[in-house]
Amino acid sequence: MSLSRSLVALTALAVTLALGACGGTDGDAANTTGRGAPSSGPPIRIGAKNFTEQSILGELYRQALEGKGYEVVLKADIGSTEIIHRALRRGALDMYPEYVGVLLSEVAEVRARPRGRDAQYESARDYERKAGYTLLAQTPFSDSNALAVKPAFAKRHGVRTIADLRKLRGTVKIGALPEFRTRYEGLDGLEDVYGLRNLEVDAVESGERYSTLDSGDVDVASVFTSEGQLAGTDYVVLDDPRGLFASGHVAPILSDRILEAHGPGLRTAIDAVSKRLTTPAMRRMNAAVDLDDRLPGEVASAFLRANTLL
């Protein structure tokens, strides 16, 4: 485990350096791809949720599509799945990248989730298809929900898995986004699957989850597995032996209307981006924004150029 963590961290560091270098010498890559023929269809309104990874994903799809000549409007910083998915359904958006597991548990409200990423993907795809939406290819990386603790805490209490939290006396405080309280991949599931009743959610903003854990205000943080903070040895991610947290692979949801309007080229262009998004790549980009204070647009642009997508 610790070896793999180190490898991940090293890889992240290497790609970060490569990214920085590419930022300065990306002229050739930009020229070879260039801008495609402008599409005649309506502008594509892409939504993104209000945390780092979503901001980066929004920028990745926007810049890649604009590079192909599509007209794109990016609506970033939209709230939770509950909010953004409703906006998509209402027609205020044409597309947004969603986590397959979240889509199943919080939107489709499928509790008896199929095991395996492909099965979950197909289930979610079927769900969307009925409503007139297409779930495009999912990313190699997975950003699933997880619980993390400080290594000292793990050592002191002998906590390695989620189930170990039951051994703790008293209330265990979890720093999480407010919706964690009402989600299945939250308090509900933790109670149902692991029988945890001694948990209390301390609602914090997305950017404050790690800092409240660091300060000791909370015992456990609700995290996402692709977050850059997890690349090092500062935190311990608890195992999920009973599979509460579903697949965190991302798949863009598009309205069939917009797919038809722009033809198969649009799907190809989006899939080309998605399939390059490996866990190390995503974690590295998250780290570049969260830890190195770089802008999501800048990070996305560097990645696309490095992968000749722009």
Binding site: K75, G79, E82, I83, I84, R86, A87, R90, L93
Partner: peptide, 11 residues
């Protein structure tokens, strides 16, 4: 309206 108010009312 689209990404907050109306969605919240729907929720």
């Amino acid at each position: 309206d689209a990404f907050w108010a109306t969605s919240l009312i729907e929720i």
